[in-house]
């Protein structure tokens, strides 16, 4: 009696001390990954930005870094990204918001419990499958309506991409709408408003920063999406804002170059890191904005 098991305590202390370091390293590993991405993008694209005059990125109208007489108009790639993302948002924001309002304010709780995980499956579908669907099912269908639509079109890719990002809008949007306190809804119902009125006039503004963060994160998804556009929107960069044409996005360009032979240090190799750096900056901006909005929402509610 009275003696503490000293030896085993000493072992415990060792284990504890060791584990703290293992866990701390793991915690920082995610930072290491980000660091790896940033450093790789910077060092591998530096030669590219080194020998391409900065001005030409914006003044050239074509993006043909691999040609004998190269052009460096990154606008051609950005236009592709802009148009496909725009088309996707035209699908995902109205439809996703509508579904969020419906599921949060109208649907029976049991219906919601079943439907929400099913909707989330839409973003679990492998993107290469969506690409297949856009190219081989949707495009022929759209060609029946509009016969001049080329085999590869930003419209078709964008529409399918819109379906893919619906769950980002709906899921986050519904969460933030449902976290608006019931008391607030009751205040509006007590004045004689209907469900849709309460949803649009009280719940929607109350959940706005949450919804906005959902939209911004969905944009980030669409900007970074690769396989759907690489398969269905075409791989040739083209400076156009017409969704009925084919054009390469920033991501599709990276795929197109990667598919070929790609020696380390070649201009092709450098150019995809340059494109990647641009992509990283864009999505970083959207992600940070999205998370800032989300934090603001959590603090407000």
């Amino acid at each position: 009696m009275g003696t503490l098991p000293a030896n085993s305590r000493r072992l415990d202390k060792w284990v504890e001390g060791g584990m703290v370091w293992v866990l701390r390293f793991s915690g920082w590993a995610s930072v290491l990954v980000t660091f790896g991405i940033v450093v790789t993008l910077v060092t591998e694209s530096a030669p590219f930005f080194g020998h391409v005059p900065f001005r030409r990125l914006f003044t050239d109208t074509m993006w043909t870094p691999l040609f004998a007489e190269p052009q460096y108009g990154i606008g051609a790639l950005l236009a592709g990204t802009l148009v496909t993302t725009g088309v996707a948002l035209c699908v995902a924001i109205p439809l996703g918001t509508l579904l969020a309002i419906y599921l949060s304010e109208f649907a029976e709780p049991r219906f919601r419990e079943v439907v929400k995980p099913m909707l989330e499956l839409l973003s679990a579908v492998p993107t290469v499958v969506y690409g297949y669907f856009a190219l081989l099912t949707l495009t022929p269908l759209l060609q029946k309506i509009y016969p001049d639509l080329p085999q590869f079109s930003m419209l078709s890719a964008g529409l399918i991409m819109g379906i893919m990002i619906i769950p980002y809008v709906t899921s986050l949007g519904e969460d933030s709408m449902r976290s608006v306190p019931m008391l607030l809804r009751e205040g509006a119902f007590a004045l004689g408003d209907g469900k849709l009125g309460v949803a649009l006039r009280v719940v929607f503004p109350g959940a706005f920063s949450g919804l906005a963060s959902a939209y911004v994160l969905a944009i980030s998804r669409a900007v970074g999406e690769t396989m759907i556009v690489a398969i269905a929107a075409g791989l040739q960069p083209r400076f156009t804002l017409n969704p009925l044409e084919s054009a390469a996005t920033v991501t599709a360009f990276i795929v197109q170059v990667s598919l070929g032979d790609l020696p380390h240090g070649s201009i092709g190799y450098q150019s995809i890191f340059a494109a990647g750096a641009v992509l990283f900056l864009m999505t970083l901006g959207f992600n940070l904005a999205g998370h800032a909005l989300r934090r603001r929402f959590h603090r407000a509610s």
Binding site: P181, L183, G187, A190, L191, P205, G206
Partner: peptide, 12 residues
């Protein structure tokens, strides 16, 4: 019927 609730619930 107007109603006033337990906690103030002004709209945002």
């Amino acid at each position: 019927f107007g109603m006033v609730f337990q906690k103030p619930n002004p709209f945002p």
